[in-house]
């Protein structure tokens, strides 16, 4: 098996079972930042330069989502032939932040407000390694949907 490498350093943990996004939290005002902010707090009323490294909540609720049917330009590393993929924006309750990510699983399991969980998945593969990225997986899809999916996308939405 090829080596698994993060597609970007320092943005998430590589824990295969319970990965987490790596952000920061302002030590003074409590604002969260993802990707991590370590310079000055971006709250205009806070002059802090002190941040704590934090792992963000691994579960959140869907703010919105979309499946992309056209191959995006580089630097996206699209498989050949192109496979449509879904992107979701996910609200984390504690951090009060919305974080985007691709979706693993069936987009028909998504709706605004539905629950998702953070997982690791392959972004692209080259000769050298499997490049990993964070993705959101619908919790409704994990055994919750009875039987095989039969309805059209329109019916489910």
């Amino acid at each position: 098996m090829k080596e698994r490498k993060p597609a970007i350093e320092g943005w998430f943990t590589m824990d295969p079972d319970a990965p987490a996004l790596l952000g920061t939290r302002c030590a003074e005002c409590g604002s969260y930042f993802f990707p991590a902010e370590r310079r000055y707090c971006r709250n205009p009323h806070c002059a802090s330069e002190n941040f704590d490294d934090v792992e963000l909540s691994r579960r959140g609720t869907v703010w919105s989502y979309s499946t992309n049917h056209y191959e995006p330009p580089a630097p996206y590393m699209a498989p050949d032939p192109f496979v449509p993929y879904t992107v979701a924006a996910v609200e984390l309750a504690e951090e009060r932040i919305v974080v985007m990510g691709q979706v693993v699983g069936d987009p028909r399991d998504l709706s605004v407000g539905s629950e998702v969980e953070l997982v690791l998945d392959t972004l692209f593969e080259d000769d050298e390694a499997e490049h990993m990225v964070w993705k959101w997986r619908p919790l409704a899809g994990v055994g919750a949907r009875g039987g095989p999916a039969t309805g059209s996308a329109e019916e489910v939405r």
Binding site: S64, Y65, S66, N68, P75, Y76, V87, A89, S111, V112
Partner: peptide
Amino acid sequence: WLRFRLLGATNPTYFALYARRRMEL
């Protein structure tokens, strides 16, 4: 650069997030 690389988030992806939310809300 990173939003294309890590997410494949094109401009229409963002427009679509707003559109989907309008439909559901």
